[in-house]
């Protein structure tokens, strides 16, 4: 009698990842009210920043001149784009945490491609939802928030978004590794936090980095958020294309960041998995 072995080829990986993606979508849409609320929540959060920006706008009129004096639009676009990057970064950590607390991670580790397929599916789901939220607000809200959108420039905008999202995958894997390496198991991790605070304070999410000291501006250039936000604002609010020198420069930097961060993040994540295997930490129950 012949034996059967588990497969670890590309078609198996793709089919497993798609299954995990489908599962995640099914779980997310299982409770209708929660799905609707989830989609609308980002819109309402953006509204808060919009009105706050309207209130403080007289104080930053000078810095907003390059953006048509539209501080509210500046803030909303920054909030949405940074939220997209943060969602991408946290997607891997959230997938690991869900697998751990749902007692499924141990099960996935029993298959050669189990964890990579699960992460791909789950992170892919988080990315889809983040893009969906962004798209809803882009279609409905940006006009309401006073952002004049250059729709003809959509290919450039999409390219910037995709390259920017890829550039933070490595950071996301590093964030996920802290689940096991630093025992950060309660739905928050230090990597995402550091990225969030730095990007909020110096990368231009809520105000132009020009107002910061020059050494801080140089430090800001190390963050993917800085380049994404600058390129995105130029593309959305000023219609700059991929050939624009600043946009091209930012895209190149994001590409290099992707090449550096992704392998490093993957290495840290593998380290975390090995630690969990050694200590029996794939599940909270022995």
């Amino acid at each position: 009698m012949g034996f059967e072995y588990k497969r670890h080829d590309a078609p198996t990986f793709i089919s497993a990842a798609l299954f995990c993606l489908k599962n995640a979508i099914s779980g997310w849409t299982m409770f209708v009210s929660s799905t609707v609320i989830d989609l609308l929540q980002t819109f309402f959060d953006a509204t808060i920043f919009f009105f706050m920006a309207v209130y403080v706008a007289p104080g930053v009129a000078e810095q907003m001149a390059p953006f048509g004096g539209n501080y509210a639009g500046y803030v909303v676009l920054g909030f949405l784009a940074a939220g997209l990057l943060d969602s991408m970064m946290k997607s891997f950590y959230n997938a690991v945490a869900s697998g751990y607390w749902g007692a499924q991670f141990e099960f996935y580790d029993a298959f050669p491609l189990g964890i990579p397929a699960y992460l791909t599916g789950a992170a892919g789901f988080n990315l889809l939802i983040a893009l969906l939220r962004f798209a809803i607000i882009a279609l409905v809200g940006l006009t309401l928030f006073g952002v004049r959108v250059e729709w003809g420039n959509s290919p450039a905008v999409l390219t910037i978004l995709v390259v920017g999202l890829i550039s933070v995958i490595g950071l996301g894997l590093a964030a996920a590794s802290t689940f096991f390496l630093l025992n950060a198991k309660r739905w928050s991790d230090p990597v995402s936090w550091v990225a969030h605070i730095l990007s909020s304070l110096i990368a231009g999410v809520y105000f132009p980095p020009d107002i910061l000291p020059s050494w801080l501006q140089r430090f800001a250039a190390l963050l993917p958020h800085f380049h994404l936000l600058r390129a995105l604002r130029l593309a959305v609010m000023a219609g700059a294309g991929l050939g624009h020198p600043v946009v091209a420069h930012d895209l190149a930097v994001l590409g290099v960041m992707a090449l550096v961060f992704v392998p490093s993040g993957a290495w840290l994540f593998r380290l975390g998995i090995h630690r969990a295997e050694r200590l029996g930490q794939f599940t909270r129950w022995v």
């Binding site: 489908k22 599962n23 979508i25 099914s26 849409t29 299982m30 209708v32």
Partner: peptide
């Protein structure tokens, strides 16, 4: 069903 048999859809 692609969504699973227990899904509300």
């Amino acid at each position: 069903s692609v969504m699973g048999s227990s899904h509300w859809l």
